[in-house]
Amino acid sequence: MNYGPLIFLATFFALSGSWCGFVLTPQLQIGRLQQTNTLGTASTTYPVARPGLAGQGLQVYRANGCACCHSQQVGQTGTILEISLTDAGTNQSSTIAALLDLLKGTDDHPTAFVPLPPLEPAGSNAAAAALQSKLPKALLRTSDPAAAKAAVKTLNATSAKAEFWVVPVGPDLSRGWGKRRTVAEDYLFDFPVMPGSQRVGPDLANVGLRLPDTKWHLLHLYAPQLVVKGSTMPPYPFLFEKRKIERRPSPEALVLTGHLAPPAGYEVVPTPGAVALAAYLTSLRADAPLFVAPLTVASAPTAATTNSQASSLAASTNAVPAQTPAK
């Protein structure tokens, strides 16, 4: 390596290799991603661009370096499949027998299934009780997709209706930080993308699901220690304005007590930046089921969800001209 051109060529070769690997190929693979469809019968396009206020909030997040302490990516260490019954069927005894067979396994094929609480302790009594109770209910758990599919087939053959639910698992998910791992599609419309590398504060990928109240976020930004006991987050009073109450208190004013309360005649209102940031935070969610990150979203209608689901489904299906009553 005595010559300049040789060293230069070595440098060029090495750097262009890593450039192709981590600049060019990611651009080709994920830099040209388009919107995709979610899984399931109520399929929608995903993701949708953040509404304007949330988009501005993203810039406030960037300018104040929130990504220094908060990550926005959730990991997953595995996926389990839960066999659930949606309909008990007419021949309950054969369904019970099939369930118990699945749990026992055979001599050369030990069982791949673990009973879930409705079936514990495993036995025909527990199985019968589970079948009588309110369905749908997850009864078995496995991590083997082939076994799960076979079990569903077996149970369907006994006139019951079974399906398997895909449930991602991992420490982040157990902590309630998400329902599935985050994937490239979740960040499609963000600029800049700030997945963060530190968890000095909790992960924010799904904070819009956990804490959907903008008023909570505003109060938390103003005085974190007031809202979260033991928080180490610094307050952001510069995102708020302490001003004299004119005529009537503003509906946006923060409700503060104790030593944080403003002096009489004054109120603390959020600036547009704070409002935008709160809107951004409540827009953060990454729980749509995708092909690359499968997840079963509970779709069985219950009394509480029927109408809301009906209206959302009605909204998403293509409009058909209403039938006009004819005489």
Binding site: D87, K149, K161, E163, A300, P301, A314, A319
Partner: peptide, 30 residues
């Protein structure tokens, strides 16, 4: 493996199918 792990689009229960049919918008329109 990813394909094997996709949620089953198994036969919906009668009530689930009923909701879908109601909203097709077969019935909900009127």
């Amino acid at each position: 493996e990813l394909e094997a792990m996709q949620p089953a689009s198994g036969p919906p229960s009668l009530a689930q199918l009923g909701l879908l049919v109601y909203n097709k918008p077969t019935c909900v329109a009127c």
